[in-house]
Design a protein around this nucleic acid. Sequence first.
DNA 1: TTCGTATATCACCAATCGGTGACATATTTC
DNA 2: GAAATATGTCACCGATTGGTGATATACGAA
Lengths: 208, 208
Amino acid sequence: MIQKRQLKVRDRQITSRRLISAVGSILAKKGFKGVGVNAVAREAGVDKVLIYRYFNGLEGLVTAFGKEGDFWPSSLELAGGDLYKFSQTPLEERLSVFAANFIRSLQKRPMTQAIMAWEIIETNELTDELERVREESIMEFFQMFFINDKTKIDLQAIIMLMGAAVSYLILRSRNIELYGGIDIRSEQGWNRLQEGIDQIVKGVLKSV
Amino acid sequence: MIQKRQLKVRDRQITSRRLISAVGSILAKKGFKGVGVNAVAREAGVDKVLIYRYFNGLEGLVTAFGKEGDFWPSSLELAGGDLYKFSQTPLEERLSVFAANFIRSLQKRPMTQAIMAWEIIETNELTDELERVREESIMEFFQMFFINDKTKIDLQAIIMLMGAAVSYLILRSRNIELYGGIDIRSEQGWNRLQEGIDQIVKGVLKSV
DNA sequence: TTCGTATATCACCAATCGGTGACATATTTC
DNA sequence: GAAATATGTCACCGATTGGTGATATACGAA
């Protein structure tokens, strides 16, 4: 007896998950410009109408994707794996290690980079979510480890400047090799930047 | 005698200029995503086929636009209008003034901001051009005013970090209000950042 | 087994995209 | 003047976009 082989199990959960993870794949592969109903459905191997049925459209799907993700490094990761040990290291070294961890945590997250690039262009539920998480996380981390009573320097502003600089250079390294004469695609270039940050930290802390 | 009124003078130069400036308008108004053959032609009040005839397509038009523009601040502007006076001010103040001028020069150039945002996403003739001009200009400026013989600090890396930070925060301010607890849309927020930069400069120069 | 419902497929829509060929009219050249 | 050419208009193309209604089929409950 010939039985028509069933190619796909019908399961809303599985299909939904497929769609959600397809968003991630495309984001990492093609960037945010690739994220469209047709492309996502194709990537998921699913009909696009299901995006509307299950998520009320692409916006809803992207939102669902945003809620799944661990896009932003945790405090633990930024501290280097040991919060207590981190809290006990001298401020200067703490800042240096933090910068190093921040750089690496972004470098190894192409999906996060893609969302950060998206943020530059427009806002949506996903970028808002990353925004929210980052702002919350960075402020928590700051208050945990970098509160300074000395009023002579604005450590918060300085740290955020460093964070902004690193974010920019990470994003630019996706498209260019040289920024201000520094090779932002090579290990050496980033070592140089890291040392620059260390010099800033050292200099600034002398003023405290 | 009834004479059919001539609505448009036929002049390739004028039409070409219209198309080129339409690119700028759209870029400032809608961002790079708005730059397409149809939209540009509509904005210019001209048939899109002329984009192909006169510029061999949109890419060519965008390239032509890139060659027209003064997108990047000149050395004179970054120095504050007087190169000699600038060269005579103490290094610490020179760096501080440079940062302030850099910030303002970007803040008042929405078109440049739009291209910088474009650079984050993809490369084309226009972004390549801005890239080239900036790299050249910034290196020239650096070698003119900030060459440091003292080997203890890497002034180049530090300046580029500051430039990257400012670029990032300018771009982010188009979409968000708060970055790391700092209001990047208000005068006060930028004053705070400027002071942070000043503290960095002061601290770093002490190490020289 | 039967039947209702959840799930998925498919065909199709209007709008927009980049791109082009045929034609009309203004301008220049002879 | 007429002819040649430069310039501009218009209608249309195929591909792709986001979005939907009708229909087929698998699954769970009876």
